[in-house]
Nucleic acid binder design. Structure first.
Lengths: 154, 154
DNA sequence: TATTGTTATACTCTATAACTATA
DNA sequence: TATAGTTATAGAGTATAACAATA
């Protein structure tokens, strides 16, 4: 089916196509772990930032507190992540448990293989360039705070 | 919150981040039309491939027949797209109606502005390079057909 | 037998709103 | 008042499975 020049000219569309292809492959690579790429990301973020609370994790994942909760519930049920007493009586401190560490290592390896598969047609230099350009996407600095105040990610 | 080198090193993760940022901006740019970026994509595909059936559209969108149906139902209800008799008595031929054409034009303009905003920090050359590299993502040619046969996108 | 559209159903992910406890 | 967690509820998007009509 033809895309036409309208779609081809949009960077956002090309990024979305690339995301679709890569996410599907990464998800397939993780089926045996029964955890989505997003949950792997959450575990890695907890590993890199031990003691963070759920709200902070949600912000890093671009989801709100309620969605972050559900995510943590699943990881906690599977004994991959633990809620410990936090900086005050309200907050939880999230920590990756040993079983979680092991799982992250194995999942990361599978994900790296998927990544390598998807960049097989590119040179190492091209991959580096792609990385740099992807980081350059986004609004032109300027205003960083939303004017609206709601109970979510802002 | 730190990402750590594990996430930063994954192209798939960077693509996902980029997608998240760009999709959110594009979606915001389309709120007044009450149609998602994905529905704009569907309309563009129908415009570029008039007479296609729902199954083909679904394939192009990477969704199955059932999901494509729901999409078309919404667009048909709003008189943006029409189902006409197809190549045989089973298939529908999809066509973009005049009102749909007008809406696509307006939405595309809004989307292009969003796109420009998100690439504001890049030169025209860099945008071209990014396009080319994104197209290079994906499995190394080889096998294109799934071995499994199911009632979906394969 | 295979394909197209369709319907019913369910699952995942996420959001909103309200509530509790704490600050 | 504001913040962290929680719960209930709802919505979007998509998938699976089955069926009828047609090929």
């Amino acid at each position: 089916m033809k895309q036409g020049s309208a779609l081809k000219a949009l960077v956002g569309y090309q990024v979305q196509r690339a995301h679709l292809i890569m996410e599907a492959d990464a998800r397939a690579a993780l089926t045996s772990f029964d955890l989505s790429p997003a949950k792997l990301t959450a575990m890695i973020l907890i590993r890199e930032n031990p003691g963070s609370d759920q709200t902070a994790l949600g912000k890093a994942l671009s989801v709100n507190r309620s969605s972050a909760m559900k995510l943590i519930n699943i990881l906690a049920e599977r004994k991959l992540v633990e809620r410990r007493p936090g900086r005050d009586l309200r907050a939880n401190a999230l920590h990756l448990l040993p079983e979680g560490e092991a799982l992250v290592a194995a999942m990361l390896e599978a994900t790296r293989q998927s990544d390598a598969r998807m960049t097989a047609r590119m040179t190492a230099d091209e991959v580096r360039t792609l990385h740099a350009l992807l980081r350059k996407l986004g609004p032109n600095a300027a205003r960083r705070k939303s004017a609206v105040k709601r109970d979510d990610k802002g």
